[in-house]
Deep mutational scan, measured.
Amino acid sequence: KELVLVLYDYQEKSPREVTVKKGDILTLLNSTNKDWWKVEVDDRQGFIPAAYLKKL
């Protein structure tokens, strides 16, 4: 499984997104879309802008 580091706080703006904090380490589920990556946060799955994440 691939992990990503959150570079900036992000507040979800729709039900398909998730809220994260800078410094969080998340499981990356899908990065095929270059703009929005799907991650897992506390048993929730959702999207975050790829620019907010860095692969570890």
Rank of each mutant, 00 (worst) to 15 (best):
D42Y: 09
L28A: 03
P49G: 02
T32F: 10
D42K: 15
V39H: 00
A51G: 13
D42F: 14
Y10S: 01
Y8P: 00
L29F: 03
V6F: 00
L3N: 06
S31N: 08
D43A: 12
Q11Y: 15
P49F: 03
L5D: 01
K55D: 05
K54E: 14
E40M: 11
Y52P: 01
K13Q: 13
N33D: 15
D43N: 13
G46I: 12
K1Y: 11
K13S: 11
E40W: 08
R16P: 06
K34I: 10
K55W: 07
R16Q: 14
K21V: 08
T32Y: 10
K34S: 11
E17Q: 11
Q45Y: 08
D9T: 05
P15I: 10
K22S: 08
V4R: 01
L26F: 04
L26S: 01
E2P: 10
K1M: 12
S31I: 06
K55A: 07
K13L: 10
Y8K: 15
E12Q: 14
I48F: 02
N30G: 07
E17F: 05
K13A: 14
Y8S: 11
D24L: 09
K21M: 08
W36L: 05
A50N: 04
A50Q: 06
E40Y: 06
E17R: 04
K1T: 11
Y52I: 15
Y52Q: 06
V39F: 01
I25C: 05
L56M: 11
I25P: 00
P49T: 01
T32E: 15
F47R: 03
T27P: 15
F47Y: 15
E12W: 08
Q11I: 15
D9C: 05
L7W: 02
L53C: 15
T19D: 03
V41K: 15
D43I: 09
V18Y: 03
L26A: 10
E17A: 06
D9R: 02
G46L: 10
V6P: 00
D9L: 02
P15V: 09
P49S: 03
D9I: 01
K1H: 11
Y10Q: 01
L28K: 01
K55S: 07
D24I: 06
K38A: 09
N30R: 06
Q11A: 12
K38V: 12
D35Y: 15
R44N: 06
K54T: 12
K21W: 11
D9V: 02
Y10V: 01
I25Y: 04
D42H: 12
I25T: 05
V4N: 00
Q11V: 13
L29Q: 03
I48Y: 01
P49D: 04
E12M: 14
P15T: 11
L56E: 04
N30D: 15
W37I: 02
D9Q: 03
L53N: 00
L53I: 06
S31P: 05
V4Y: 06
L3I: 08
I25G: 00
D42T: 09
V20K: 00
P49H: 04
L29E: 03
V39Q: 00
P15A: 13
K38I: 15
Q45S: 14
V41T: 12
D24P: 00
D9F: 03
L3M: 12
K1F: 15
D42Q: 12
D24W: 14
R44A: 06
P49Y: 03
Q45K: 14
K21E: 06
L7T: 04
E12I: 09
E12N: 06
D35H: 14
F47N: 04
I25W: 04
P49A: 03
D24V: 07
L3W: 12
F47D: 05
V41F: 11
K34C: 11
G23V: 01
D9W: 03
K54A: 12
T19A: 05
W37Q: 01
E17S: 06
E2K: 09
T32S: 13
V18A: 06
D35S: 11
L53M: 05
S14W: 07
K34Q: 12
G23L: 02
D9N: 08
V18C: 07
L26T: 02
E17W: 04
P49C: 05
E2M: 11
S14I: 04
N33R: 09
A51D: 12
Y10I: 01
V20R: 01
E40K: 10
R44M: 07
K55F: 08
I48E: 00
L26Y: 05
T32P: 04
L53Y: 00
D42N: 14
V6E: 00
S31F: 06
R16W: 15
L7M: 08
L28C: 11
D24T: 12
G46K: 04
E17T: 07
K13Y: 05
V20A: 11
F47H: 06
T27F: 11
L7C: 07
Y10C: 02
K22C: 09
K21C: 11
K38M: 15
K38D: 03
V4L: 04
K55L: 14
P15M: 08
L5R: 07
P15H: 11
Q11W: 15
K22I: 05
L56H: 05
V39M: 01
D9G: 06
T19R: 04
K1V: 13
A51K: 14
E40Q: 15
Y8E: 13
E17K: 05
T19P: 03
V6R: 00
V41P: 01
T27S: 10
T19M: 04
W36E: 06
A51C: 14
W36K: 03
Y8V: 10
L3S: 08
D24K: 07
E17H: 05
K22A: 14
Y52H: 14
V18W: 06
V6L: 02
L28H: 01
E17D: 05
V6Y: 00
L7S: 02
K13H: 09
Y8I: 09
K55C: 10
W37K: 01
T27C: 11
D35L: 12
V20H: 02
Y52E: 02
I48H: 00
L29K: 05
D24S: 11
V18L: 14
K13P: 05
Q11P: 06
R16T: 15
Y8F: 12
L56G: 02
Y10L: 01
P49N: 04
